[in-house]
Simulated assay, not measured.
Amino acid sequence: MATDAIVTLERLRCIRESDGSGHSEPYIWPVLIWIDTTNGQVNTADLVLGNARIVIDHDMRAGQVVLIPSSVNTLRVRFTDDPQRFTFIISVVLWENDETPEDAMRAGFKAYTSELRAAIIANLLALQAAQGNPAEEEAVKATIEKRVKDKVEAGIKGALTTGQKIRIALGTLNMDDVVGSDSENLGAISTLATTKPFTLAFRNKSGSESYEIEGNLAVKPVPVDLCQAQVDAVKAAQAAVDGVRNEIRQLQAELHDASPQQKPGIIAMIKKLQQDDLADANTALQKAKQALQACRDRPVHRPPVFDPGGGVLTQ
């Protein structure tokens, strides 16, 4: 029987904030990591690219608690073999939304998701050796975080235009800030129906920004569905469509406050997303839905039931 491991990030609590341009606009980059204890293989699940800048609240203040939107609060992995042999880790970066260009932020997100897995693989033996020793665990985590941070910063910088770099140097382009990052080693699961709550803490170096995220890991058996592969394909295709639409909405919001020099570039990005990316994503979704319908319409061949006295009762 298949089993789902589901991480849900439920609530974001703002403990302290002091955003210079007003109240906070946080967004998150969550990644679920699972490590096969039998062979050391590392796998990750993260957001679709279009959901990498979903603002959780546009006017968050100290003392407030808000629900994290469904588009970014759930990471799900399906196992067809025994999930009890895997160790699960949840890692989240909390950002403050400001004026980083969309192309640069997307480049940073891609660097983050790829480098995090690579950094864990490179430090896996050190992580395993440090288990049970909090000081050593923190040291290994710091090594991983620095490697990932450097890669993300390089990715963002590499996607900036010369004009944008000049504006940063002049102080006229306010780049998004990392409030903090945190991870939790959820360990291995003990049963095939379990829930593990966790709390992640985020704080910048000065202490002026402080947040918490409450979440849980749930492991649930999956009812048998003969069309499960097609169902999963539809969900993935729908997530891709939603991700592109979210990107368009984010850019449209940026367009409202953009300078005359910025508007042509933002408009061009919106048109490309609408004409190319969204069209392709909708085509893929339509094909996935057709494949699912074809699977549902396929006749189910049941084995014959035999009469104890001889003969076939039903076919």
Rank of each mutant, 00 (worst) to 15 (best):
L12E: 05
I33L: 13
R61S: 07
G163H: 11
P303Q: 15
N97T: 06
T100D: 04
D280R: 14
D103R: 14
V72D: 04
G108D: 02
R78C: 09
E17G: 06
V179R: 06
A104W: 12
A233F: 06
G180S: 03
F109M: 03
V7S: 02
A284S: 13
L278T: 12
G20L: 15
R16H: 06
I266H: 01
L251R: 13
L292P: 08
D297H: 12
S190D: 15
N174F: 10
Q84W: 02
I189D: 00
D176Q: 08
Q262W: 03
D4S: 12
T162W: 11
W34H: 12
L127S: 01
K220Y: 11
V65S: 04
E212V: 05
R167Q: 09
D59A: 15
T199R: 09
P260M: 06
I6S: 10
I144Y: 01
R11M: 03
M175L: 14
P83G: 01
A154D: 10
H256N: 08
E102S: 11
E96C: 02
G20Q: 08
N204Q: 00
R13V: 11
A201R: 11
L186V: 10
T3W: 03
G163C: 05
R16M: 05
L47S: 01
A253K: 15
A154E: 09
L32H: 02
L116W: 01
V55A: 09
I33K: 00
W34K: 07
N216P: 07
A104K: 05
N97I: 07
T44H: 05
I6G: 06
I33G: 00
T38E: 15
S71I: 09
G163D: 05
I68Q: 06
A62W: 01
Q164F: 08
E254D: 15
T162K: 15
A291T: 10
V178P: 12
E17C: 00
K151D: 10
V234P: 11
L125N: 13
G158S: 09
A130S: 12
A5D: 03
L255M: 13
Q293T: 14
H58P: 15
A218L: 06
A233Q: 08
Q164N: 02
P303E: 10
V42Y: 04
G50Y: 04
Q252P: 10
A45Q: 15
A126F: 06
A154P: 09
E145G: 02
L192Y: 02
D81G: 11
A169N: 07
L173W: 04
I15N: 07
T74L: 13
A279H: 14
L170I: 02
T199E: 10
N246C: 11
E254P: 09
E10W: 10
Y211G: 04
G215T: 10
A237H: 03
G108V: 06
